[in-house]
Amino acid sequence: MIRVVSAFLFGLLFGCGILISGMGNPAKVLNFFDIAGTWDPSLAFVMGGALIVTAIGYRLAFQMDKPLQASVFSLPTRAELDTRLIGGSAVFGIGWGLSGFCPGGLIPVLGLGLSGPLLTAAAVVAGMITARWLSGVRTGGKHAAA
C-alpha cells in the first residue's frame, strides 16, 4: 500500500514539474529546438534543474544499503553503445521534433483530455507494441523488450 501511494505522489510531483516547466507544452518544446527561428531556451533550465537535483540526490541515495521499499536498486547494467541505442534514440528524436511531445511531457497532459495529446498517446502505444513485436520476430519470440 505504501508503495502504491508513494508512487502516485511521486507521479503527481513529476507531472506538476513537467507542467510548470513547460515540457508538456509542445509549442514551447518545438520553440526550444527552433534555434534558427522563434527560439525559447527555457527548457534548458528544466534539464539543468532536474540534473542538479538528481545527480546529488542519486549520490546520497546510493549510500543506502537498499531502497526503503524494495530489496535492490534496479539500475541498467549495459555499457555498450550499439546500433539499437543510437538508432532508437535517433528515431525517438524525430518523433519528438514532429509532435513536440516526449513521453514524460505527454502523460501529464492526458489529464486535460485534449484530442491531440490523446491521439499522440495512442500512436506511442502502437509504436511500442510494434517495436516489441519486431524485437520478438528478430529473436524468435524469446526476447521481450526491456
Binding site: 510548470i20 513547460g22 534543474g49 532536474a50 526503503l68 535492490v72
Partner: peptide, 23 residues
C-alpha cells in the same frame, strides 16, 4: 518556472530511487 519545474522532476526521480529503487 522552468528551473523550478526541473527541480520538481529531479525530486521525483530521487524519491522514486530512494523508496522504490527505480529509474
Amino acid at each position: 518556472l522552468s528551473f523550478a519545474g526541473g527541480l520538481m522532476i529531479g525530486l521525483s526521480a530521487v524519491a522514486l530511487m530512494v523508496v522504490h529503487g527505480r529509474i
